[in-house]
């Protein structure tokens, strides 16, 4: 039953991040808690169903790393600290882009091999991701935490999918990662502004481009 609730969190993160993005776009106007409030809108029931569940019809598999990055962006100003620093976000972008490049072209029909099928019963993906998580955590990269949480979600079967790929990457995450890597200077500027609070002096320092 936990998979019924995951979209509530995921779509709240999407709406909150969109609100935070608009805040930044308009010169950081509005209170810090505004993204949080907008995120809560996803839980308002309409015709007996939370808005997030209605939206779930359009995209049923928002990956855990994407949700983590969106939550970081939208909640950091409110909470006063950033969980994912520049280094972690860069790791996240590389992870999303790499996983997407491996997965999507072939899954869309380029060639006779379908890597998505490996996500059901081939332990290699779990070993690779587990190894990456260990490496990142050992080196103190916070994206290792994201992969650890993804592992928890995978164990708890938080999503309706039984395929590990759906926990790791989704098309939105893939496209955002590609954009972030192709245009790094703009990305750094956006990430810096979206997930930081101009009033806060503490927290993780973010290198300026």
């Amino acid at each position: 039953m936990i998979e019924w609730y995951y979209p509530l969190l995921a779509w709240a993160a999407v709406l909150a991040a969109m609100a935070r993005g608009l805040q930044v776009l308009f010169g950081d106007r509005g209170p810090r808690w505004l993204p949080l409030l907008v995120g809560v809108v996803a839980w308002i029931p309409v015709a007996g169903l939370p808005i997030a569940r209605w939206l779930h019809g359009f995209n049923s598999n928002l990956s855990i790393p994407l949700v983590a990055i969106l939550l970081n962006a939208s909640l950091s100003p409110f909470c006063g600290r950033r969980w994912l620093d520049e280094r972690a976000l860069r790791a996240g972008l590389w992870f999303g882009a790499s996983a997407g490049v491996i997965l999507y072209p072939m899954a869309a029909g380029f060639g006779a091999f379908d890597p998505y099928g490996l996500g059901w019963h081939w332990p290699g993906i779990e070993l690779v991701v587990g190894g990456l998580a260990v490496m990142l955590l050992w080196r103190g990269n916070a994206f290792g935490w994201v992969l650890l949480v993804t592992g928890v979600a995978w164990r708890m079967e938080c999503m309706e999918s039984q395929n590990v790929w759906d926990y790791l990457v989704d098309p939105v995450y893939f496209i955002l990662s590609l954009i972030g890597l192709v245009a790094p200077r703009r990305r750094i500027a956006i990430v810096d502004r979206v997930s930081s609070d101009p009033d806060l002096s503490e927290g993780t320092a973010v290198p300026q481009p």
């Binding site: 059901w120 019963h121 332990p123 779990e126 070993l127 991701v129 587990g130 190894g131 998580a133 260990v134 955590l137 050992w138 103190g140 290792g144 935490w145 992969l147 650890l148 592992g151 928890v152 995978w154 164990r155 039984q162």
Partner: peptide
Amino acid sequence: RTLLTAVASTLWCWPREDEEVH
């Protein structure tokens, strides 16, 4: 770090209960 890496490796590398069709 040792604890974290142990948790991560257990989560990802411990065989999951397999209910899928082969």
